[in-house]
Design a protein around this nucleic acid. Structure first.
Lengths: 220, 220
DNA sequence: AATAATTTTTAGATTTACCTAAAAATAAAA
DNA sequence: TTTTATTTTTAGGTAAATCTAAAAATTATT
């Protein structure tokens, strides 16, 4: 069984691997809030245990075993987030840190019962898919709001930023999961976007628009 | 904040202090499944941090601060046990190990919301009292079943053994919390006890009778 | 292609929680 | 009250995860 720390490394490598194939030491260090030298040490250990393939100076990739372990942690994290929001009335911007701890509780039985208790949810409070107990999940094909053209419309189904500040901001703007939106204009000056939500016209910055994920978008 | 390990030490010292005033190094070592030398090290650290009073060779006692920290962990442990049994349909003999992990999740908010979600329970699935958020709880005054006399009756309201084997055994015998019992006879030969539960006469060993806690007992 | 900049690794230390073996203190028994 | 047994502590060491500083490899730039 992996340690608390090993699990965190695997999870972070997994998420970074969604962006690039070979995950670099430095990017792991940044996410783990630690130093590259420490990462090298841990990578060697994970490689010894068969969780990653590692060639010196070439970064790492997860093995099948490593990916499965990572997906299992992601599953736990997201299920706990659903629990916190749906059952304990946490806001979607308050759950991350607690779920970060809960994801390391080791009991297969616990997670299966929790999954059932929650009604086998398919996605977490931020719209991210929850792997089933076999590690399978539908890969979402979202479009970033920023990439839509004037006149396009769709539904908010996810976010690609989980910071409390960002989520609170969205909440205030009424931009929560499930909301229908339409692009009315894109400002030349700063790239900010005019959108229509719940019959109200609002303006969001480019930075915000980058991290809102839209599905079912009907292009006009 | 205390580490995972420090929390376990505090919890164990707290429970041992319910039996004896000065808690010995050896008994801590036994419960912690570690060596006395390691306990000495940790005790010094806990003393430095102000959690225990410690005089060399004289064992330890919890300070106010130490007791509060310990009670907080006990509170979390017992609330999680209620969650596991009441919400996730765990049996009372299956919850201990998982709760042992969950008790270390640090979020005051989480525990208060969980407490509310569970309806502010007063006792856990084994009948042990749950401290409120200020650390206050009613001290139960149970009588051990073994101490009852022929003709006495009462209600099962606790157990003083939490092993899965013991709890499964009780379950099979129908001796669960809330059950009404009456002492019919005590066997001279082996000290086993004849009791009446749910209109059925059963025989339980002395060892079992020692660990069943009875309240509301009407002596005849 | 040589130099500079960046990234990654090695070498050697530190901290936490643990260990063993031996010494010291306390408690029990002769 | 010695002697013996038990308990506890000290001393010195290990493994995990981290660190800093310096060396090595890779990548980018001139």
């Amino acid at each position: 069984m992996q340690s608390f720390t090993e699990e965190n490394y695997l999870k972070i490598i997994y998420h970074l691997a969604e962006l690039t194939n070979n995950v670099q030491t430095n990017s792991i260090a940044e996410k783990m809030q630690t130093k590259p030298a420490s990462v090298t040490d841990m990578i060697k250990k994970l490689a010894d245990k068969g969780f990653v393939d590692y060639i010196k100076y070439q970064g790492v990739t997860l093995t099948e075993k490593g990916r499965n372990a990572a997906i299992d942690i992601v599953r736990k994290h997201r299920l706990w987030e659903v629990f916190l929001v749906n059952k304990l009335n946490f806001k979607w911007d308050e759950v991350h840190d607690v779920a970060e701890e809960l994801e390391h509780i080791k009991s297969v039985d616990l997670i299966e019962r929790l999954d059932e208790f929650l009604g086998f949810p398919k996605s977490d409070p931020h719209g991210d898919p929850i792997p089933d107990k076999n590690g399978r999940f539908a890969k979402n094909h979202f479009t970033k709001l920023i990439e839509l053209k004037i006149g396009d419309s769709g539904t908010i189904t996810g976010v690609s930023q989980h910071s409390s500040a960002f989520l609170k901001h969205l909440e205030k703007l009424g931009l929560t999961l499930g909301k229908q939106i339409q692009i009315n204009d894109v400002t030349d000056f700063d790239g900010s976007v005019e959108i229509l939500v719940a019959d109200k016209q609002i303006n969001i910055s480019r930075e915000v628009a980058k991290h809102i994920l839209i599905s079912n978008n009907g292009k006009n």
